[in-house]
Nucleic acid binder design. Structure first.
Lengths: 196, 196
DNA sequence: ACCTGAACACCGTTCAAGT
DNA sequence: ACCTGAACACCGTTCAAGT
């Protein structure tokens, strides 16, 4: 039986855990610092000893999201030839968004105004981006395509999967059965490798 | 000199105008019904005679946004051959997002939970989508490409431009001069027609 | 038919004070 | 070093009352 000591002891991780739960339930805008504090059993102002404010807590959640996305992309890396790997990378990106829509929105949305203020978040985001870039560049190399600006194909592939993920989680693509939706995702994520 | 009569007379349009101004300044989450009421010179609760709540007001703003986007797409329709028109349509879509980022986010974001609750908004959204679909289908026809599910290429093209627009306005594509950014937009929006 | 005023249940954040 | 309590300036929304 915890006797509610004056000092929590590990409040920071407790706040993050509670906030992550609230995030998937209600989204970042409805997530409140006060409710996260209540879940951890501390006063409304206790979080300010561990986070500069709400945005800093959200940035910490986003960093965890980017790390999770990076792991998901790493899992499908080098599971086939370069074209198959690129397709699987795109599919994993979309699957991540569908599995954790609120976290995905937070990671890329405007709640965190400037990632450079939160180095941990910025670094984690760059880690995920580097996996995408690597898959695109490996694919281009395998097809002996030489480009002067590798950023263009990387952003093209990223736009394709990011756009599909966004449209899906924001319910812009409706009136489809689960089966048709899956084929659609395969077709769109495969477009970059199958060509126009 | 208006003598602040008890009845405003045209409060609904006045609220929409004020809210649209606030939207581009601070974004939908920070836009408050109370501030829009203050701008119109009425009490905090007056908006409830004209809108069911904040979401209904946002939905009305989003409907205007979709109408504006539709006009922008119509302006570039049939300005060249089918491939050029499709490319211009994509470019116009991204340009709209860059010109009105907060409105774009509102139109496609989670603030409006279910467009079918707001028929005006749903209809306006479908109008814009139909312009995109038309451009894609005209392009496919011009290249004599026959597909059984025209939705797949339509969603592919949409994902590409929607993803690029989202990444740009959410500041995910950084460290670029204006010139390189413009070339990037041209390359990505052109990818669907130039092929992989 | 349209608008106001007071009230309720919330927020994020600050600051002096407590252990 | 970490946490609390009271306070400030906000929200969205409801409801009885005013014109």
């Amino acid at each position: 039986m915890a006797k509610k000591p004056y000092h929590h002891g590990s409040l920071r991780p407790a706040l993050l855990a509670g906030a992550m739960e609230l995030l998937e339930q209600k989204g970042a805008p409805s997530l409140s610092l006060r409710e996260a504090a209540r879940m951890a059993g501390v006063s409304q102002t206790a979080p300010y000893r561990h986070f500069a404010g709400k945005e800093a807590l959200l940035a910490a959640l986003a960093a965890r999201g980017f790390e999770e996305l990076t792991r998901a992309l790493d899992e499908v890396a080098a599971t086939g030839n370069a074209a198959e790997t690129l397709h699987a990378t795109g599919r994993a990106y979309v699957d991540f968004a569908l599995a954790r829509p609120q976290l995905f929105r937070l990671m890329f949305g405007p709640e965190i105004r400037d990632k450079s203020v939160f180095p941990e978040t910025l670094e984690a985001a760059q880690g995920a981006y580097s996996r995408l870039t690597a898959a695109v560049e490996a694919y281009l190399a395998s097809r002996r395509i030489h480009v002067k600006t590798p950023r263009v194909p990387a952003v093209t592939a990223w736009s394709l999967v990011h756009g599909l993920a966004s449209l899906l989680i924001d319910n812009q693509i409706t009136d489809m059965e689960e089966d048709g939706k899956n084929r659609l995702i395969d077709a769109v994520t495969g477009f970059f490798v199958t060509g126009g």
